[in-house]
Amino acid sequence: MMRNSPLPPAPARKPDLEDDFTAATLRADIWVDHYLPHWTSPERSRARHDFVRGGLRLRIDADQLDWREEDAPLRVSNLQTGMFSGPVGSERGTHRHRPDHLVVRTATPERLLWAPSAGRVDVTVSASTDEGCMLAAWLVGTEHLSAKDTGEICIFEIDADGVGDGRSRARCGVKAHSDARLTTDMTEVVVPVDASKPHTWTAIWGPSGTLIGCEGVVVKHMPPFPRYPLFLMIDLFEVSRRSASAASYPKTAHVHSVRGWESASAE
């Protein structure tokens, strides 16, 4: 499918994953409100969030700790649709995205809340315009079946300085990480939206490849796709040094709705 083509319509059936956050409480049957908690400690992985009119607000607060002390500056508030790790001291766990041999610090029980091997997901968000922030959504290999299943579909990564009035920059594509069956293929795209306002990103993956779209239009199409279960992650990062002024906080982004459909087969 060519770039700038209309996206295929969403399936007519009810989504397997659906949340517009109007319940004003985080659904434990869908979400884990920690960022990769097995590689760090609970007080560092726990998301800061609240519910506002129109959805869920992810926050970076002035007193929030770095995700790992040795990774500073890096503070994260994240939602993900499951978790998996091996025992403390092992290197088994979801999203071993680093080359420096992450080691499990907090053992987490296997929770496969939504982990399709093929399907579609629509994520409606408003990105952050706060200094040093990035809003991202990824589908990452769970790795609970095999440590080889490390691939990632990057639905979008939007830096605060990429948000513009009527046009915004984002990155999207596939990241192989250590999966030798995949090739990293990332692209910076310009989309005709003010990403600080509600807009929808879509990922469709399966036998015909990986398709990424924004506001109903294809922005990238790639032949390969990870052929194994994937968790959805939606993240607000602060990747610069902590702002000197407490008045700069909280730094925020919004998640308005998420809808996902699992396909019957990834073959």
Rank of each mutant, 00 (worst) to 15 (best):
M1P: 14
P8F: 06
A12I: 10
L17T: 00
A24W: 10
A28Q: 13
L36R: 03
H38C: 02
R46H: 02
D61Q: 09
Q64A: 10
L65F: 09
V76K: 03
S77N: 11
M83Y: 07
G86Q: 06
S90I: 08
E91C: 05
H97N: 15
V104H: 07
P109E: 14
W114F: 15
A115E: 04
D122G: 01
V123R: 07
E131L: 13
G132Q: 00
L135E: 12
T142C: 13
L145H: 14
I158R: 03
G162E: 08
V174L: 15
A176M: 14
A180S: 15
L182N: 07
V191E: 10
K197I: 03
P198K: 01
T200M: 03
I204H: 04
I204L: 14
G206M: 04
L211D: 06
I212Y: 05
E215I: 01
V217H: 12
V219E: 08
K220V: 01
P224L: 08
P226A: 12
L232E: 07
M233D: 09
L236N: 10
R241M: 06
S245P: 01
P250D: 02
K251Y: 11
K251C: 09
T252I: 14
R259L: 10
W261I: 05
A264L: 11
E267N: 13
